[in-house]
């Protein structure tokens, strides 16, 4: 564990909590992509199967359990409890365009041809693009509530900090995982446009809206 990874994990944790609180406090999931949330739940399910096979640390297990339960909690709030507020007309990104390439790529490019390993690889590829339905939704409506933009910023920052962690681990331990690194770079790059608008608008107290 190093400081970059810790900040990354906490940023991820913070993003999930912001989203849950936003939905809970406003009793509404308007502006949130249910499709991205389902993809994230699938990412956690396929990645954290090792919760039952490999023990790493208490921290590691607790975080995995939190990510899994919170992602199902979010889905429950969106698709059941506050279903009426779900903006499904704007949430139309075709997720098969993300699922199928991630699955094919996981079968082709992996560290080992083994069920758990392929599922882990699939989760890494899918996570890198899972935010696209959400970004697509924001681009369709042209704006986002500031709380949603804080959520997106924390979620994007998480993988960015992981990149710093991988650089650190490469120099300090000689450890590197090319699959995670390349997917993590793709994931972070997808947020760049959003980061730019967040910094130039939201942090100056303006509403998050796309340039006309």
């Amino acid at each position: 564990m190093n400081i970059f990874r810790l900040i990354g994990d906490l940023s991820h944790l913070f993003a999930i909590i912001i989203l849950l609180l936003k939905i809970w406090k406003t009793r509404s999931c308007a502006g949130i992509s249910g499709r991205s949330q389902i993809l994230f739940a699938l990412v956690f399910c396929t990645r954290y199967l090792d919760l039952f096979t490999h023990y790493i640390s208490l921290y590691n297990s607790l975080m995995k359990i939190f990510y899994l339960t919170s992602s199902f909690g979010t889905i429950y709030l969106m698709f059941f409890k506050f279903k009426a507020t779900y903006d499904r007309n704007h949430d139309t990104f075709r997720v098969e365009f993300l699922l199928i390439p991630s699955a094919v790529l996981a079968l082709l490019i992996n560290h080992e041809f083994d069920v758990l390993e392929i599922l882990w690889t699939f989760s890494i590829y899918l996570e890198s693009v899972a935010i696209l339905p959400q970004l697509f939704m924001v681009s369709k409506t042209g704006e986002a509530e500031s709380i949603t933009s804080h959520y997106l910023f924390a979620l994007g920052a998480y993988r960015g900090f992981y990149i710093l962690n991988w650089i650190y681990r490469y120099y300090s331990e000689g450890f590197y995982d090319l699959i995670a690194i390349l997917a993590g770079i793709v994931q972070t790059v997808l947020y760049c446009d959003f980061f730019y608008l967040y910094i130039t608008k939201v942090l100056k107290g303006q509403k998050f809206s796309l340039p006309a």
Partner: peptide
């Protein structure tokens, strides 16, 4: 490298 397969990151 066994290390890469024991995914210790989240």
């Amino acid at each position: 490298n066994r290390n890469t397969r024991l995914h210790d990151e989240l």
